[in-house]
């Protein structure tokens, strides 16, 4: 018998007489009663895990992206990013300093920062979720540069984890990000900054 058949047979044998329960339905989600409090909570909890959080109006996005980029010299701007942002960044740094992608890992390592949009924000945990669609690029783009500026539209923020799970498409690769890279491996105390981007800036846009 193949390993597959043997394992499946053993599984069936093992639970043959076990009592069967009913799986619980999906966890009910409640729409937020206070939208501005939810956005406040998202901003506060993202900041609690050491992301830099900036709230601004839609018209101010480019200004704040430029501020957040500080002294970054080469920046990845994935395809699908708002045109105003691309223009502002390439206007300041020059067309050669920005790229929508890089050919290989080594070339990508030469970029200091990346600016993206996101697929969702979660208020209860201060998390941003990328599904690597329009404006976010393939996964490596948000991994190797040391600074990640993430634009979150206020309408993308949901109250809690179940709301996000319902809204996201499992067929797309996803990266859930809560603050910059961190570790608790030394005496179980949290230290920020290991392998992923060491600086995360969350730009929460709208409702201002």
């Amino acid at each position: 018998m193949s390993a597959r058949d043997e394992i499946l047979t053993a599984v069936r044998e093992a639970v043959r007489d076990a009592p069967r329960g009913q799986p619980p339905g999906p966890q009910p989600t409640v729409p937020p009663t206070d939208r501005s409090a939810m956005l406040e909570r998202f901003a506060a909890l993202a900041a609690d895990y050491r992301a830099t959080v900036i709230r601004c109006k839609a018209s101010e996005v480019s200004v704040h992206v430029l501020k957040a980029l500080r002294d970054a010299r080469r920046v990845i701007l994935p395809a699908g990013l708002p045109e105003v942002v691309v223009e502002a960044v390439s206007g300041r740094l020059g067309k050669d300093a920005v790229a929508a992608d890089a050919a290989g890992h080594a070339e990508l390592e030469g970029f200091d920062a990346v600016v993206t949009t996101c697929a969702a924000g979660i208020a209860a945990t201060g998390t941003v979720v990328l599904d690597h669609g329009e404006g976010q690029g393939r996964r490596a783009l948000t991994l190797l540069p040391d600074l990640h500026v993430c634009i979150v539209r206020s309408g993308q923020v949901v109250p809690d984890v179940p709301d996000a799970v319902r809204r996201l498409d499992p067929q797309r690769p996803q990266t859930w990000i809560s603050g910059p890279s961190a570790t608790s491996d030394i005496e179980l105390s949290r230290v920020e900054g290991v392998h992923g981007p060491r600086t995360l800036v969350v730009l929460l846009v709208g409702d201002r």
Binding site: T127, P173, Q174, W176, S178, A182
Partner: peptide
């Protein structure tokens, strides 16, 4: 509340 990174891929 949430770990820094969760990756999912299909």
């Amino acid at each position: 509340r949430m770990n820094p990174y969760t990756s999912t891929w299909s």
